[in-house]
């Protein structure tokens, strides 16, 4: 799994990091970062306003592979206060190193689940004492949710990510089958038409659903239509 620093792209330098600074300044936070794993390729795209020294250390040691503020937090629906992750064995591994860089271990991560099944993670941290952090948190949590979804939308609409999302690599057989589904054919019918077993049809459909990050076949057809891969039928 690769980690790509979006700040190294021209667009990122201009926008992404500046927005993190703005959020931190407005909401009295120390650091902020955003990361999202591309649901198709698994690549993590991220940007942060943490000091460069920590950033290079983090990337060099591939800390994103074990960082619980990414891994564990992405499975919650609610903001995850890092306090909740302390029992995770990887928490101390990552934050011991952060401590050496004088970085705080008080913070929270907001997971955003997108319509493509992707997850964006917006994290903020603070040097405040725990009681003061609690007060600040309840004051700014609504703003943080709004900031999180804003960042997520910006990143998801940026070229790097949308290119892979826009063109999930479906095989011609998968497209062919989805097209027949869109025309209202049953799996049995499609099997007969293409001279393959209904089970083979099902396997292809399952794969298409996963590639399109769809829960149901109807949803997969909808996405394939909106991506221009098949005709609406």
């Amino acid at each position: 799994m690769d980690l790509i620093d979006l700040a190294s792209t021209p667009e990122g330098r201009r926008d992404f990091v500046g927005q993190l600074h703005d959020v931190c300044e407005k909401l009295e936070l120390d650091y902020a970062s955003y990361a999202s794993a591309n649901p198709v390729t698994g690549t993590v795209h991220a940007f942060t306003n943490y000091p460069d020294a920590w950033k290079s250390h983090y990337m060099e040691h591939e800390l994103h592979m074990k960082d619980p503020t990414l891994k564990a937090a992405s499975r919650s629906i609610a903001p995850v206060d890092w306090k909740r992750l302390e029992k995770d064995t990887n928490f101390s591994k990552v934050f011991h190193q952060a401590h050496d860089f004088n970085l705080p271990d008080v913070g929270l991560t907001i997971p955003i689940r997108g319509p493509f099944g992707e997850t964006g993670l917006f994290s903020v941290s603070s040097t405040l004492s725990l009681p003061n952090w609690k007060k600040l948190k309840s004051k700014v949590i609504g703003n943080l949710q709004a900031a999180a979804v804003y960042m997520h939308d910006r990143v998801m609409n940026s070229e790097t990510i949308m290119q892979t999302l826009r063109y999930p690599t479906l095989s011609s057989r998968e497209i062919e089958i989805l097209q027949w589904v869109a025309l209202g054919k049953s799996q049995q019918d499609i099997g007969d038409i293409l001279s393959i077993s209904p089970r083979t049809v099902e396997v292809h459909l399952r794969s298409s659903r996963e590639k399109l990050c769809a829960v149901t076949t109807a949803q997969a057809v909808g996405r394939a239509v909106s991506l221009g891969m098949i005709d609406p039928g």
């Binding site: 629906i77 955003i112 319509p115 997850t119 609504g142 949710q145 829960v215 149901t216 949803q219």
Partner: peptide, 26 residues
């Protein structure tokens, strides 16, 4: 979350009567 896959968008769409579901991070 209503921004990700959820029942109203993916299963209960009859209720929505053909309209897109509400999606909001809050």
């Amino acid at each position: 979350q209503t921004v990700g896959p959820h029942m109203l968008s993916d299963v209960f769409y009859d209720i929505l009567d053909g309209e897109p579901p509400l999606r909001s991070v809050t």
